[in-house]
Amino acid sequence: MTAPRARRRPAALRLLLSALLVLPLAACGSGGGSGPGDADGAGAGADGGDTALTVLAAASLTDVLEEAKPLYESERGVELRLSFAGSQELAAQVREGVPADVLVTADSTSMDGVADRTEGPVVIAENELTIVTAPGNPEDVTGLADLAREDLTVVLAAPEVPVGRYGQQILDEAGVRVNPASQETNVRSVLTKVTLGEADVGIVYATDAASAGDRVATVTIPAAQNVLAEYPAAALSEAPNPVEAAAFVSWLRSDRAVELLETAGFRVP
C-alpha cells in the first residue's frame, strides 16, 4: 500500500532539493526593508498621518532612535521607518540606490563615501569607545593592555566597519597587539557575544555598553587613549520625501533630541 507513494517521493524531493540549492546564492544581497509602494502613496497623500520617512541609521543608534520614534511621530505626524545596520553597509545600500530619506552613520568616512548622494551632512552626536566584559568583570580586565592576554576570548568589530576601525586605531596607538577570536560585522554583534558569554571581552561604543545595563561591566578607556566618533546625519539627494527628510535632520539637533542623545550616553557637539 505504501509502494506507489514511496516511488513518487524521491522525484518530488529532487525538485525541492534543486530549488533549495539556489537559495544561498540569492541570500547574499540584503534589502533595505522599506516598501517603495508605500513611499509613493505617501507622496500623494499630502501631510496627513500617512506620510512615511525611511531613516537608515548606524547600529549604535538603535536604542535612542527607537525611543525617539513615537515622540517624533506624534509631534510631526509622519511614520518613521528605521533601518539599522553597520555604517559601511548603509553606505553600500545608498550607493545601490535604496529608497530612503535620511542617512545617519557612525563615522565621517562612510558619509564622505556617499557625498554625491547626500545633502550637506551635519554632526549630531559623538561617541566614545569602551571595553565591556561579563558582569562583575570576572577576568579582572583593567585596561587596553589586558586585551593582549592569551587567556581571554576577545571579540572586535571588523576593520571594514567604523567601530572596528576606531578600535584598531586606539589599540595601535596604545601599542597593544590583539588576536581577536572574531571580527564581527557590526557593533551590536560584539556586544551580543559578550552578553551571551561567548566572548570574555570586547570593544564597543559607550552607548552600547549603557544600553546593555547590568548585563555587562564596563572598563573605561582613558580619554588620552580614546577616540571620539562623529555621527553625521544627512538627507539623501534621491529622498522620496525631501521636505520631511530635511525636517528630520534638523529635528535631530533640537533640544528634545539632544536630551535623548545625552541620556543614551552620547555627547552632543
Binding site: 547574499c28 544581497g29 553600500a92 545601490e96 571579540v155 571594514e160 566597519v161 572574531s182 571580527q183 560585522t185
Partner: peptide, 24 residues
Amino acid sequence: FAGNLPGVTQTLPLQVYLLMQEDP
C-alpha cells in the same frame, strides 16, 4: 555561530558580504 575572522572562520560567502560594503 562561528563569527568572522580571516583564515579561521571567514569563508567565501562571508567575504562576499564584507567586500560588498567597501568593494562591490
